[in-house]
Amino acid sequence: MTESAGAMDKRRERSSLRAWLFLVWLSWQRQARARQMVWIALALLAFATVVVALNTAGGRWTMAYWKFFGRQGPTHQEWLAQSQTVTPLLPPAGKALASAYYAAHSAILKESDFLVFTRGFVFLLFFSFLLPLWSLSFATEAMGGERESQSLIWLLTRPLSRPAIYLAKFVAMLPWCLALNVGGFALLCSVAGRPGPIAFRLFWPAVLWASLTFGALFYLFGAFFRRPAIVAIVYSFFLEVIMGNMPGDLKRFSVGFYARCMMFEAAEQHGLQPENPVIYDPVSGGTALWVLLLSTVLLLAVGMFLFRRIEFEVSD
């Protein structure tokens, strides 16, 4: 009888770890229930994939379409074609020289796909827009959504410590953030033809770490601002752009700067470098990785500490 009562007591025991794990699961599910947001994110991914695929099909990841003299003259492709028509008129020595030049030029154009894809898509669209947007939408919604719908109170009245609640929701947000950023990047690279797999192999660590740091930062915004998504877009599309392109050390406060440094180092052998290395003054890939890693941990720790103290009004 006593044994049975003891077993009953044990069964009735509550566990904080179990509660925490359930909160992670619940939060993950609730992110999935933000259907409109998920659909918009997926639609954006689908659209970007179609754009990349169409460019791949059209063979546009090449400098062949670039204008030869500045932006006024013929394209490289046209120039090569035109030049080859006059080759037979050249003397034999000139023919040999010209053939060597054309071969080299063609080889360069063929190899240029990686740089064109990286600069024209990865940097300009993925890193500057898609990655921050996907990160900010899921990260700000994780806590901001609960605040906006005034349902945060139900979590805060449970017997879980506040830092644990903060951490649980962050952990629940990560799969979404990483799936879209790293998974989305993989998908985009997979339809990009030859340069795609190279870009993915070289850049996935930068994408991963940038996602984590952006996620931690925007999640912090979500916990502390009533309109976190607005603050996050100000940061992503205004401050990051301004800070990331400044000379001097101001750019070192930009998350994107470190991610780009990792990418520049990873693709150095492919000729990728900042447009103005002296002004850009990149740090080494290792340093950038450590900065991103420590920033993520620091942002999380700060968030957990502050979340313990913050009060949420009913109107929140």
Partner: peptide, 21 residues
């Protein structure tokens, strides 16, 4: 305000799970 998409029973069960049972 609650988790409006849940049923009353699901909500109470969820709250119980969040207590660690």
């Amino acid at each position: 305000t609650f988790y409006e998409e849940m049923s009353g029973r699901q909500f109470v069960q969820t709250m119980a799970r969040l207590c660690g049972y």
